[in-house]
Design a protein around this nucleic acid. Sequence first.
DNA 1: TTCAATTCCTACCTATTTAGTCGGAAATGA
DNA 2: TCATTTCCGACTAAATAGGTAGGAATTGAA
Lengths: 145, 145
Amino acid sequence: MRVSTRGEYGVRAMFDLALNFGEGPIALKTIAERQVISEHYLEQLMAALRKADLVKSRRGAQGGYELADTPENISIGEIIRVLEGPITPLDCLDEEKTTGPYCGQPERCVLRNLWRELQDSMTQVLDSTTLEDLRQNAYRLEVAE
Amino acid sequence: MRVSTRGEYGVRAMFDLALNFGEGPIALKTIAERQVISEHYLEQLMAALRKADLVKSRRGAQGGYELADTPENISIGEIIRVLEGPITPLDCLDEEKTTGPYCGQPERCVLRNLWRELQDSMTQVLDSTTLEDLRQNAYRLEVAE
DNA sequence: TTCAATTCCTACCTATTTAGTCGGAAATGA
DNA sequence: TCATTTCCGACTAAATAGGTAGGAATTGAA
């Protein structure tokens, strides 16, 4: 039931980009240093995020990464899915046809419903939270202190 | 974000015991066959559940396993914790002292709050569902069909 | 009293996933 | 032209997942 470092680092990096949104591209090295993440490892994660169009990059001097959209249009769920695959407690939940015929095994369905409920509660949190939400919370914490 | 087979099989086995609660000990072999789980592997899981006092066992002929308490007193969360460890998306959520001093890093807190919310939504589902709930749902599905 | 059934225990094993590292090619602004 | 920076493919060590193997101890019943 854990998020791997891919997901955790990825969210941290994207959050870092959200805090610096609108200031042009940020170098990988800068993010890696601020977030204390191995540069080479983070590079792999950014590659995945770029291919998924969540960030855009510029090569060469003064290059770097920036969000491909505004922070309120990027949810944590999207980031996690890109880096960790589908958000589901059991693989079978993804392929199942809810419209399929009755399986004749009420026990199986009962357990499926349980895992489905768990999945729903997880996606509810992750899909409803955006980078903008996090950014605002960070701001609130800063002024409160 | 997955439940491993330990958790999945464990819940299946406990659910099986719940459906047969009150009928004396059920042999591991029987459960393994009904649930299509490797007998030796399930044995390991039952050992953990026994040490955690979620099931009790009887050795020898006519022996087997049965729930250590009534189905309504055993939650899915308990089963998962025994077999998979703490329910938490990030290990750090467990050790953290919420009462500790302000960490001076509002960003970190923001992300922690996110993971905490995710954790809460997961434990809410798993701790509020008992084996008795599942048993009743199975019964409903059976008569509905 | 024997025996088949059954749990209990320790150790071992293999494949996959995780969390990286390494080295260099390609692009780009100054 | 050159320092900076992304891009790319391959490699690797450690941990975790998902089991197997073999036998000792216990118990109800014939």
